[in-house]
Amino acid sequence: MRLTALPAFEDNYIWALVDDDGNAVIVDPGDAAPVLAASELGMWPAGVLVTHHHPDHSGGLAALRKRWPTLPVFAPEDARIPHATERVGDGAAFSLNGWEFNVLAVPGHTLSHIAFHGAEGHLFCGDTLFSMGCGRLFEGTPSQMLASLERLASLPGDTSVCCGHEYTLANAAFARAVDPANDALRRRTEEAQAMRHDGRPTLPSTLATELATNPFLRVDAPAIRDAVARRLGRPSTDRVETFAELRRWKDGFRA
């Protein structure tokens, strides 16, 4: 098994989990072109996983199904993803190309957002969890997103976090503004800077790394609570308010 990140648009990654024969599970193909180009080099789609309906994650489905009409597409129950062949929801389990996947509902970024966990410890989490960040709340509530992030945080620490965008350095700048004394965050930032300097993806991360560096997974940490309290001018009333204010802060943050 090898994991490949196919760049798309400005900062998307289309993930491809490829077996020794070149058969691949494709995740969130917002653009068909990178997948079609990879197929010319011997990578053959065996199935597709879609985390949510946004076009930069699902926009390539029509072209891929046209090229491979029998291609299975696993997606959430959402009419905004019209090219799905299999609808899957929370608690579903299925096998694709010999790999087992479990489905977790993770509403917040969108209401129907799901994540796929399995295939030897890989987590395909779309725009819910990013390295040192999380997705914007376009449809869900802070309470929903916090619960979704905590659900992902309960997975094993060696889980590979395969998210949908190369946002790591921008997220690191915000995280360091919130949590400047965090040595793990400093080291991860330096590592990510070196990776991008060399033209390499900063992903996947690991869940253990995110638990040590991602402020959205650390709302109970004193440093995070104190930073949010300073911003509010008072202690937050509860952990949901801490998360909500942290997300509002990030929405308007400029490095």
Results as ranks from 00 to 15, higher is better:
25 V>T: 13
76 P>H: 13
26 I>N: 04
69 P>L: 13
51 T>G: 04
61 L>C: 11
67 R>C: 06
70 T>F: 01
27 V>R: 03
21 D>M: 06
50 V>E: 02
36 L>A: 03
23 N>I: 10
76 P>S: 14
60 G>E: 07
56 D>V: 11
74 F>P: 00
37 A>S: 10
25 V>M: 10
33 A>Y: 04
43 M>W: 05
39 S>L: 03
54 H>N: 07
53 H>E: 14
76 P>V: 13
65 R>C: 15
26 I>R: 04
51 T>L: 02
75 A>G: 09
24 A>N: 06
53 H>P: 00
40 E>M: 05
21 D>E: 15
72 P>G: 09
21 D>L: 10
75 A>M: 06
52 H>T: 00
43 M>Y: 01
49 L>P: 05
49 L>K: 09
37 A>H: 08
33 A>H: 13
60 G>T: 09
36 L>Y: 02
77 E>S: 13
59 G>L: 02
48 V>Y: 04
40 E>H: 10
46 A>W: 00
77 E>R: 14
48 V>Q: 07
22 G>Q: 07
58 S>E: 06
62 A>N: 10
54 H>L: 10
31 D>F: 04
45 P>M: 09
70 T>W: 02
70 T>P: 00
66 K>L: 12
32 A>D: 10
41 L>E: 15
33 A>L: 13
35 V>L: 06
27 V>P: 00
21 D>Q: 12
27 V>Y: 02
51 T>P: 00
62 A>W: 11
56 D>H: 14
51 T>V: 08
41 L>K: 14
26 I>F: 02
74 F>C: 03
54 H>E: 14
68 W>I: 09
22 G>C: 09
62 A>Y: 11
63 A>Q: 15
74 F>V: 00
38 A>K: 03
22 G>T: 03
33 A>G: 09
49 L>I: 06
28 D>Y: 02
53 H>R: 14
60 G>Q: 11
71 L>R: 04
